[in-house]
């Protein structure tokens, strides 16, 4: 499915988030969207659906991040969520071999259903627990390459690798969509990031009122 351009020329993309129960996929997204890590006593959020607006090289992008339930009992429901995804982030825990096996299952299913149309990222989370690592980097990298995915290490706890991972994902999405979206005007508060790319973190809205389609397209991600 081609990403559509929403209100204000922002490219709407659907990113599905997969991974076993305790690998920390929700923490990664919360860290990215809200810069929060749930160590303790942080304001609670509904984090199963989150949005992030970005401007990369004057092109606006809205990531609609769909979390999925990772418990084994819900595994068969996955395909309902993959439908029409533009990108998928498959997360495993570097200290848990089983979670890596499960990640491979998801990747296989995704490729089967969506072919190569989906931008794929494999994420080894909990990189702060390096000493307990059981999945070797070489294996993970090789596996990712073999399925046409990129591999990243992240630590939601230390906020490491997350920005980079999402940035790379977004850039690949924009490349894929070619010139479908309208470039927006330069935002003066843009910051330069490594790689010469201008990235602006647009309004952060996770709590957009939208009940029942009542929103009249007022939000950036309308």
């Amino acid at each position: 499915m081609a990403a559509r351009t929403g209100g204000g020329g922002s490219l709407q993309v659907k990113v599905v988030l997969l991974g076993e129960g305790c690998v920390g996929k929700t923490s990664i997204v919360l860290r990215y969207v809200q810069n929060q890590f749930n160590d303790k006593h942080i304001q609670t959020l509904q984090a199963s659906f989150l949005q992030k607006n970005l401007t990369i090289n004057r092109r606006r992008l809205c990531l609609n991040i769909w979390d999925t339930a990772g418990q084994e009992r819900y595994h068969a429901l996955g395909p309902i969520y993959y439908r029409d995804s533009h990108a998928a982030i498959v997360v495993y825990d570097i200290t848990d071999e089983d979670s890596f096996t499960k990640a491979k299952n998801w990747v296989r299913e995704l490729r089967k259903m969506l072919g190569d149309s989906c931008v794929l990222v494999i994420v080894g989370n909990k990189s702060d627990l390096e000493k307990n690592k059981v999945i070797q980097e070489k294996d993970a990298q090789e596996y990712a390459a073999s399925v046409g995915a990129k591999h990243f290490y992240t630590s939601a706890k230390q906020n490491k690798g997350i920005e980079e991972m999402f940035l790379d994902l977004s850039k690949r999405l924009l490349e894929k969509e070619g010139n479908n979206s309208n470039p927006s005007s330069t935002n003066p508060s843009s910051t330069r990031r490594p790689g010469g790319i201008t990235v602006t973190d647009d309004s952060i809205r996770t709590d957009r009122p939208s009940g029942g389609g009542g929103g009249g397209g007022g939000g950036c991600c309308g």
């Binding site: 929700t26 749930n38 609670t44 984090a47 199963s48 999925t68 339930a69 990772g70």
Partner: peptide, 22 residues
């Protein structure tokens, strides 16, 4: 939305992902 609001209201341990929500 009502379920989400309930979870927001009654959760004190961080964000509620799909694992909890479904």
């Amino acid at each position: 939305k009502i379920v989400i609001n309930l979870l927001k209201y009654s959760t004190s341990d961080g964000g509620t992902g799909a694992d909890d929500f479904l």
